[in-house]
Simulated scan of single mutants.
Amino acid sequence: MTSVLESATPVTVRAPAKVNLELFVGPRREDGYHGLSTVYQAVGIHDEVTAAPAGEWGCSVSGRDADSVPTDESNLALVAARTLAERTGGQEPVHLSVHKDIPVAGGMAGGSADAAAALLACDAVWGTGLGKDDLAEVAAQIGSDVPFALRGGTAVGSGRGELVAPVLAKGVYHWVFVPSAGEGLSTPAVYRAFDSRNEGVDVPDPQPSAALMSALRSGEASELAPVLDNDLQPDAIALQPAIGEVIEAAMGFGALAAFVSGSGPTVAVLAATAEGAIDLAISLTASGVAADVMRATGPVHGAHVLPAARL
């Protein structure tokens, strides 16, 4: 009988980064997480994960910030693969090759994108045939942003972010992302700063804003810009003051909006047009405010299998 190890071919999956158009943080829950209300948008910066049958479990990482990504059992893509294997009754090992373009520890869910890509790639390699709902259920066990990385597009996230529902959104939005020139920010550290800042405050349960929903239905960047919001922005800036300088400079160069992406430190800059995004990127780098910028549009699709390369 032919085993999966002998017959399966490698599968490569591409998964997108995200930006939180809105991130409202509620009180700390008994499980240690915070209740969230967020609106995700998937943007055209991607990581790729290739799953290949192997004699033992393993992971390798190349591309942007590769040296900052663990390749041991703590790697989120490998966690995802092993979780799926257990969920489906045990599978033969795979080696995961991760190629990164999404900044590490930048508030753009690069690790979650890798996990989502690994789930989809391993599902294909093993032929487990799980549907989207089943994969999303597994994804939610791995991390708060992983279900959205599977789905993509624009969506509301609730719970700790893992409960995802699509949002009616029109238009294409033009983004410039400014990754941190220094080290990334630890998400737990940013949430601890949020808790410290709000100690003794009655933090309400978060709800999505009607203003943002309306702006997304309009499809106009000029209507979206004034309603973008992030409860964690003051805490990210307190931990890395240079973030505030980038935001101020981007607005001075004509951005419609500039704000912290997720828990930071990446700054998301919204431009009115594709040409405007190019001008902003040039201004930010030429001025010395940013050593590195990335341009992208959104929304884009979630994790998807790439066609096999032709020999």
Rank of each mutant, 00 (worst) to 15 (best):
P166M: 06
A181F: 07
V176G: 12
M213Y: 03
T187L: 06
R192W: 03
L185C: 09
S214D: 14
V172P: 01
V190W: 06
P188H: 07
V167W: 01
P166A: 07
G200M: 13
V190E: 02
Y191F: 15
L212H: 00
G184N: 10
R197P: 01
A193T: 05
P206L: 01
D202E: 14
A210S: 12
A189P: 03
E183D: 15
L163M: 10
W175L: 11
R160N: 09
V201I: 13
G182S: 10
K170L: 13
W175K: 10
S196I: 07
G182F: 01
S180Y: 06
F194I: 08
G159S: 12
S209Y: 02
R160H: 04
K170C: 12
A211S: 15
G159F: 10
T187M: 01
L163T: 13
D202K: 09
H174T: 09
A189D: 13
S196E: 15
E162Q: 13
G171P: 13
A165R: 14
P179Y: 08
P188N: 06
G161A: 07
V190T: 06
E183I: 02
A169Y: 03
N198H: 15
V190M: 05
L168P: 04
V201F: 08
L212R: 00
V201H: 10
D195L: 08
Y173S: 11
G200K: 11
D205N: 04
D195V: 07
V178Q: 11
F194A: 02
V190H: 05
L185I: 11
V190K: 03
V176D: 03
S180Q: 06
Q207A: 13
P166N: 13
V203G: 05
S186C: 10
S186L: 12
F177R: 03
A181C: 06
V167E: 13
A210F: 05
Y173R: 14
Y191V: 02
F177T: 01
G171M: 11
N198L: 14
A165F: 00
E199Q: 12
Q207H: 07
V167G: 08
A181Q: 14
A189Y: 03
L168A: 15
M213N: 03
L212M: 09
S214C: 04
S209D: 06
Q207Y: 07
L185Q: 10
V190Y: 05
T187H: 05
A193V: 03
D205S: 08
R192Y: 03
V172M: 00
S209E: 02
A189I: 04
K170R: 15
R160Q: 07
E199S: 14
F177Q: 08
W175I: 13
P208C: 02
L185T: 10
P206N: 09
V203C: 00
E162A: 03
N198P: 00
V178I: 14
R160S: 07
K170T: 12
L185S: 09
P204S: 08
D205A: 11
R192T: 11
P204R: 02
P208F: 00
V167K: 08
E162F: 02
V167I: 13
S186A: 11
